[in-house]
Simulated scan of single mutants.
Amino acid sequence: MSTLRPGSVCDTTPLQRFESQSSSGEEPSSPTASSIIAAAAAAAAAVSPNKTPNHNNNNVKLDLQMPTFVGNSGNHGSLYKPPLRGPRQIFGRILMDLCLLSCVGLPMLGFSLWGEAFNRGFFCNDSTLKHPYKESSMPSWLLYLMCGALPFSVMLVVEFFRAQDKRLHGPFEKHRMGSGYHFCHLELPTWLLECYHRIGIFIFGLGVEQLTTNIAKYSIGRLRPHFYTLCQPVMPDGSTCSDPINAARYIEKFTCAAVDITSKQLKDMRLSFPSGHASFACYSMLYLVIYLQRRMHWNRMRMLRHLLQFLLLMFAWYTALTRVSDYKHHWSDVLAGSGIGLTYAVVVTSTMW
């Protein structure tokens, strides 16, 4: 029986065996984790003069093949980055969103150009239709500025500063990897993509809310509180509401004797229910309030956030009140319009994070 000497556990060390495989033309196979650990243990035992070698290590096989490193999306420490999408994908997505918006925009345009309200009649002794005609305390340009331009500006500012605040994101958040879209050899920032999402949802919800309001307006055809003052109705027989014969009659056929009434006013006087101003203001302001609550997370600006939310809600509240005080709508019209706006604001922001 031959005596084993220290350092002669195997005829060859793992490195020598690899060299012998290479010289003989054999292609080494891929190492697994267990084979690499076993080979390292065998090499350590072979070079250690103070330990008795183990005969079971004679059958250790070394498997050498470099592993393939690929991005693993399930690994939180991975730096995997999705492939960039170019102008074709960008314009394709915009076109698809515009098609969806046209589903609500085109019916609204049709109502505005060709819609005819339901021909609702009236009683001559109806005192709710005898209020004076007044100009709106909330002009349309101010309403569009506050409920259209203001939300866009606020969302742009908030998303931009959220992207700059590293405390709101982890080290491997999406904003650090980019948006995945590039245009003119420049990758679009993630905050710009977030603005597109938020503003797009806002516009779509606004279109659905206005379409719902217009459907009700043209289906009901309710007369405005200043109907008598603006129209001065005359019956086909030439009589007016001041004649006793018309005191208790329900009038359906009439013409407006006022000479200064325009075709727009003639159409608009039948669109009292529900209030479009109230629904527009309530939707926009409540959407912005919920947006600030869920996206403006700076601790030092909590008081500022609550102040902004209060001012936004007060603007919607004031707009609704002026529609009654200006005799543009009945109180029930304003209540219904506000309910429509608040409902859609809650629905479209229900999935916002």
Rank of each mutant, 00 (worst) to 15 (best):
I36S: 10
Y181Q: 02
L311S: 04
I94Y: 01
R167P: 06
A316T: 00
D165E: 09
N57T: 15
R198W: 11
N119Q: 15
Y250T: 04
Y144H: 12
S242D: 15
L230C: 11
V9E: 06
L156V: 11
Q265P: 03
Q65E: 08
G86K: 13
F315N: 02
R85L: 12
A257K: 06
R302D: 04
P139H: 10
L292S: 05
L4D: 15
T3M: 14
F152K: 06
R270Q: 07
M303L: 10
R162P: 06
G170L: 15
S239Q: 14
T343R: 13
L150Q: 07
S140L: 14
V104S: 00
L321N: 04
H277F: 07
L145M: 07
S179G: 06
N57H: 15
N72Y: 13
P53K: 02
H306E: 14
L142M: 06
N125A: 12
S29L: 08
E27I: 11
W353I: 14
I203C: 08
S48G: 05
N57L: 14
V157S: 10
F152A: 09
I201F: 07
F254H: 10
A45M: 12
H197W: 08
R93M: 11
S102W: 00
R5H: 14
T32I: 12
L286M: 15
L15V: 11
L193G: 06
P82Q: 08
E26A: 09
I290H: 03
N72C: 13
H197A: 04
Q232S: 04
V334G: 00
N59L: 15
G276Q: 00
P233W: 00
F315K: 02
M96I: 11
S272H: 02
S34Q: 08
V158H: 03
F254W: 10
A42Q: 02
D333S: 09
S239A: 11
G221N: 03
S153E: 09
S8I: 13
K217P: 00
L230I: 09
R294G: 03
A41N: 12
S338A: 07
R302E: 08
T32V: 08
W317E: 05
P274T: 01
L304Q: 14
I199W: 01
L168M: 09
M352E: 03
L62M: 07
C184F: 13
H76R: 13
T12A: 07
G170D: 15
T212Q: 03
E19N: 09
R176V: 06
M96P: 02
A345H: 02
Y287N: 08
V289M: 10
V9G: 06
